[in-house]
Amino acid sequence: MPENFNRQNPEEEIKNLLSSLKAKPAPKDFLETVHARLEKRSILQNIIAALFLPLNVKLPLELAGAVATLIFMIFIFNSVTPQIVNVPQPKLPKLLAAKAPAQPKIKAAPILAAAMSPKPNASPVDQPIEIALVLTDEDQIQSEGELAEEKGAPPSNLATISTAKTAAGTVSISDKQALSISSQIQNLVNLVGGKVNSIESNTGNQPPAINAEIPADKFELFLKELKKLGKVNSSAQYISLPNTKIVKIKILLPQ
């Protein structure tokens, strides 16, 4: 022990004491152990060290990157996915839901059309199916405008019309009513997914008609709705062919 330890300045002596400590030599095989340690580190350790060390720097950055990627993916997904919106089916106008005629309904039962078709050689699907719409006395079809007009109409007009109905079984309709029926039929064609090709006006001999095409699978539905407008007579019978997709129809309007 140092006998001449300076008690007056212990800090200085401590410094001298520490500086007198001998250095500790490294083990003789130190270099070899360092090499062994360098080689020992696996690829996985290198990857982990590269990805995660230092933790306090890399981990927050990687988390932020993951969150940003997630937000970006959600954004892309929402942009690409088409939004499915339930469009409510347009309701048919009140007038189309008019009472069905009391006469027995004609069912569009599928029977052979060859015997009925005017052109025996022609394929049934090529010929438009003629459907005549006949208004009976129980049908009350009025356009929106006519509703207001007839409210104030004198009873005698109604009686005349009623007489005419009784005599012929059909009712004569005004231009406005014809327009209303025509528009209703066109709406019906559109509703079943078909299209109106042409509208023929009254030429004297021929009644006004609407030429249209409707999907074959909606034909029966179309007929059912059409019968709500009046009596329906069809010149040819519809046959359901497996490959038929479109049916041509010609609706003869009441004159």
């Binding site: 250095a23 500790k24 030599p25 490294a26 270099l31």
Partner: peptide, 8 residues
């Protein structure tokens, strides 16, 4: 060169 220093 530095092994002893580092070890110490």
């Amino acid at each position: 060169k530095y092994q002893d220093i580092v070890y110490s």
